[in-house]
């Protein structure tokens, strides 16, 4: 039982990061109908910016803020300078360009910082707090939960309570009509990419210190897992991304804990296949066809 409780908390902690990164993928999918395969590389670039700032200032928190700011800028830049000019006639165009961006960003990071793992520190202890002799959560896990919960809350408020959020949703669902109603659809698209990239940067800042460290490929596996989480939840659904992320985190933790870590990729694949066969749009997909 102790092992089950430990694995559950460990899974939830990892799942929170997958949820955040899946949210980043969902944000761009909703805004532009693009699966941003460059999301991981963009997030790593932001994490490298944080590394440089932290090295220069000695402050984790200034570096943390720099990662979010860099994430915003990279997202806006990628949309304005690259994605805006990609033809939409064939969906593969965007995928190919995104994959090209991955190679470009990882190559540039490799040239600037090298390909070896750089140390990445956490602002709080990763030693688990024991309750009744069972190690549960560390202070860092609590920080991760808090950061992701704050992120989900802020995004929910943005999209449901602000006029900017309403513009963003309208621009995503009905771009032409939105233009007729005075919405700057291009601006909303840029904002969507910027926000998604910042969310990805946050996820990178949370997960990289728990892995081997900073490396141009540090988010590759996280991207695959989070993409699975987003598909399971439904690429159109922010609540689906969060639920999918937590579910994938838990399943990976249980499978890794009880069956061995070598089985986890198969478990994720099996989960993905089941969802795609039973409910291809994902668990939280809308069941009503768009009529506008």
């Amino acid at each position: 039982m102790d092992r089950f409780v430990f694995l559950t908390f460990d899974g939830l902690s990892n799942g929170a990061v997958y949820a955040a990164f899946a949210l980043a993928l969902v944000l761009i999918w909703r805004a532009a109908r693009v699966v941003n395969f460059a999301q991981g590389a963009m997030a790593v670039a932001a994490a490298y910016a944080a590394y440089s700032v932290t090295q220069a200032t000695g402050s984790y928190w200034i570096g943390f803020a720099a990662a979010l700011g860099t994430g915003l800028m990279i997202g806006a830049l990628v949309e304005r300078a690259v994605m805006r000019f990609v033809g939409h006639a064939n969906p593969l165009n965007e995928v190919i360009v995104a994959l090209g961006l991955v190679l470009f960003i990882q190559a540039v990071l490799g040239m600037l910082y090298g390909n070896e793992f750089l140390p990445s520190h956490t602002p709080f202890s990763r030693n688990a707090i024991e309750v009744g002799g069972v190690p549960l959560l560390s202070r860092y896990d609590l920080f991760v939960f808090g950061a992701v919960a704050a992120l989900v809350l802020l995004l929910a408020l943005l999209f449901t309570k602000t006029s900017t959020g309403l513009r963003m949703r309208a621009a995503a669902f009905a771009p032409e009509v939105s233009r007729l109603l005075g919405v700057n659809v291009g601006g909303m698209l840029t904002l969507g990419w910027a926000l998604a990239s910042a969310v990805g940067a946050l996820a990178a800042m949370l997960v990289i210190p728990t892995e081997l460290g900073l490396n141009p490929h540090a988010m590759d596996l996280v991207f695959v897992t989070s993409f699975t989480a987003a598909v399971i939840g439904g690429l159109d659904s922010p609540p689906g991304a969060v639920t999918g992320g937590m579910a994938v985190g838990l399943i990976l933790s249980y499978v890794s804990g009880y069956l061995g870590s070598s089985v986890t990729p198969i478990a994720v694949l099996a989960l993905l296949l089941i969802v795609l066969l039973v409910r291809p749009g994902g668990l939280f997909s809308a069941t009503v066809a768009r009529q506008a």
């Binding site: 006029s163 309403l166 513009r167 949703r169 309208a170 669902f173 009905a174 032409e176 009509v177 939105s178 233009r179 007729l180 109603l181 005075g182 919405v183 700057n184 659809v185 809308a286 009503v288 768009r290 009529q291 506008a292």
Partner: peptide
């Protein structure tokens, strides 16, 4: 295009252009 409505010209397109995913109130505020 997005400036025209501010100049006083509104266009209700063919098929009505109701944003199906938004509520009535959100559509109106939009």
């Amino acid at each position: 295009v997005e400036r025209l409505v501010r100049l006083g010209m509104a266009h209700v397109p063919e098929g009505r252009g109701v944003v199906a995913e938004l509520t009535v109130d959100e559509n109106l505020r939009l």
